[in-house]
Amino acid sequence: MTKKLEGNVDIEALKLKKGDLVKEVEELCGENLFGCYQCGTCSAGCPFIEDMDLSPDEVIRYIILDRKEVLNSKTIWLCASCFTCAERCPRDINITKIMEALRQIILRKKIDRTDLTEITKDEKETIPQLAFVSLFRKNIG
């Protein structure tokens, strides 16, 4: 099953070695992805599931299978770190941290997801400050 993912990251340029994705993710987040038995609880409770191209459990499977195109999925940027999946996983896997690890793999190569110049003056004046700090922390390396 191949899905067309929307992202704009040149995966080659990230220079991840073959078979290295799961290692890299595990190092960043300290979670054991192989503990996942693909029950789908995480995906069932995710408030953003309808807009995602890969469900959270698919993300885990993609990582394990070294399918690096997961880095081009909308899902990893839609995840707002609400911790619902992490709270409910019967295997105690912190998917919230796995999503962050995937974002970090990209951001740490100095590839930003948000272009600050796109934020308008009106938005800066009306939206609460904590939204901006969160957005920058999540989308800018």
Partner: peptide
């Protein structure tokens, strides 16, 4: 009541 409101996505 315990579901995320969308958080910082409110900007973009």
């Amino acid at each position: 009541k315990i579901e995320c409101c969308g958080s910082y996505h409110t900007i973009q």
